[in-house]
Each structure stands twice: as C-alpha cells, then as structure tokens.
Design a protein around this nucleic acid. Structure first.
Ligand SMILES: [Mn+2]
Ligand SMILES: [Mn+2]
Ligand SMILES: [Zn+2]
Ligand SMILES: [Zn+2]
Lengths: 144, 144
DNA sequence: ACCTTATTTGCATCTCATGCGAACTGCCAA
DNA sequence: TTGGCAGTTCGCATGAGATGCAAATAAGGT
C-alpha cells in the first residue's frame, strides 16, 4: 500500500475524508509485515487513540482492500489477515506460533497443472496463484 | 478417506461405535469430490435421514479429520471445506461460482523460496505446501 | 463560519462453529 | 438373549468474527 501522505491525497481526491482514525491506521499499516487481523490492529490503535471503535477499524480495512491498497487472506486460524504488501508474493505459516512471513517464489507461472481427468484439461483460466508453506519457523524449530 | 466398510472396522477397533448417522456420512463422503461444507453435507444427509442433527455432522467431520481420513481447508468464502482426498494435491477455485476442483501439480517440492531478507534464509522448515489457483472455470468463462 | 456529506460509533444481527448435558443406543459380556 | 456400560446424538446455549443500521459527529469545500 502507498504511504500515509499518498493515501491522504488519494482519499481526498475521491471525495473521502481523512480523519484522525484513518490517519492512524494508515500509519499502523504502512510497511507492516505482521499480517494483522482487524482485532490485532484495533488493540494497537486503541493504545494510541483510546475510544477508536473496532467498527471503524473494520470499515477502514474493508475500504482500503476495496481500493486495492491491501490484500486479505483467510489462513485457517480464525480471523482474516490483512496485508499492505500488494505485490506478487506468497506466505509461510508457522504451525506452532502462527507467525506469517512473506516469501518470494520463482517459477510460479511455470507450474505444470494437471487435472484429475484428461477431459478437464484446459478447462480453467488461472487469474492468480496463492502458495502457502506450512511448517516451523526458526524460533519454534528448537522447542519441538 | 477409506471405504465405508474399512471405516466401520477402523471405528470399532478404536472402541468407537458405528451408528446409522456415521454410516450415512461415510457413504456421502466416500469419493466425494465437491469439497463440501458441514452445512452442505447436512442438507444432503437430512434428505436421506430426516432428523439427523447438524451437530452430529460437525462432530463426525471433526472426528474423521482428527483420524486423518479427511482434510479441511479454509478458502476465503465462509465455511470450512472438507476433503476426503487426503493424497497430495492442490486446488483451483472459480471466483465466479466458487467451484473447487482438485489439481495435481508437478515440481512443488522444487519450488525455489526466497525470503525477503537474506538473514531469514533457511529459517523455516516446510512441512507441507498448499497451492490455490483462482480464476474462472470453463462454464463461467463464457458468461463473463 | 456554515453547511453538506462522509464518517464514526454503539448496538443489533448474522454466520459458522463449539461447549454442554440429558436422553439414547451400539455392542460386548454374562 | 438380555443387561448395562460407555460412547453418541441432539437441542440449546455460547462464542468468535464480521456486517447492517442509524443517530451523533466532524471533515472540508464554499
Ligand atoms: Mn504478505
Ligand atoms: Mn481436494
Ligand atoms: Zn513459530
Ligand atoms: Zn465457475
């Protein structure tokens, strides 16, 4: 996603208002690599702006995602994760501590996909590919 | 997952009972390639066994998954999907009709993963890889 | 400074899923 | 065949995550 300053301009030019709540979330999301949930962001935001509502956090995240400034994913562990990194990348998830990290994978577009039945061949037009590696992060590998 | 007959033996040998509800679900799941939700299975089961409870469907699905007879996935579209195909395979999801199909992908273990920072190299032990292709199925490609 | 319009917020509502316990039943043992 | 224990079913309560709604509030152009 773009910088808080750029988002400020973008919002105004769309007739959207730049509120303190939104400015705070712009800042909390910029360069955020933790793939936070809405509730996680709400916790951090509340510390800096007591009284901000969870509803507003959801609202702003949904708006940003709709504008293409955020991606969102449903990893199996409950709430949806938001990601300001909208470039092409994939994820590794630690099954022990649930940490989600960005990874970059070569040759994704060259993956050779074969359907179960030959009759299904070429029956699907791929628009995007999501890869999730599950395993153990360095920190959790020791504490087996 | 194994056949209803095999599951019957397996359940009994674990001290678990083989009820009519479970037998029905064994049958409905065997060779099922639709990646159904619990609610979807409940609908089909109810037609054949009026009075079966949604709670029992969830219970049995959870038990089967725990025994390794089913996989479960959270694609973004709401409820968890169950999959009796426990072999190594991946999925393509139609963004238009939400149909989920099995696909088999070559070279998954040879994917070259590069973390964002060199310092993170070799910091993750991959246990499994899930690939989801999103796009349009043959049927929905026409009706753009 | 004013006024229009977007936003915030609290509360209700919704979906999906699990906890709980009374009633029920599979199935083994006598 | 029958008795009885242990595992199951089922309905209802509860919980998490997320969205609908409308009154109160505030941004920002004029
Ligand atoms: Mn990411
Ligand atoms: Mn599958
Ligand atoms: Zn970890
Ligand atoms: Zn389709």
């Amino acid at each position: 996603m773009r910088t808080p300053a750029e988002l400020t301009t973008a919002f105004r030019s769309l007739g959207l208002k730049v509120t303190p709540q939104r400015q705070l979330l712009f800042r909390l999301l910029h360069d955020n690599t933790t793939h936070p949930t809405a509730e996680a962001l709400f916790e951090v935001a509340s510390a800096q702006m007591p009284g901000i509502s969870l509803r507003t956090v959801y609202q702003t995240l949904t708006d940003l995602a709709g504008m293409g400034e955020l991606q969102s994913f449903a990893f199996g562990g409950g709430a949806i994760r938001f990601d300001p990194n909208v470039g092409a990348h994939h994820h590794q998830v630690c099954v022990s501590c649930d940490e989600i990290s960005d990874v970059y994978v070569d040759g994704v577009d060259q993956l050779n996909v074969s359907p179960r039945n030959a009759s299904d061949a070429h029956s699907f037009t791929v628009a995007s590919t999501d890869i999730v590696f599950r395993g153990r992060c360095m920190r959790c590998a020791d504490t087996v």
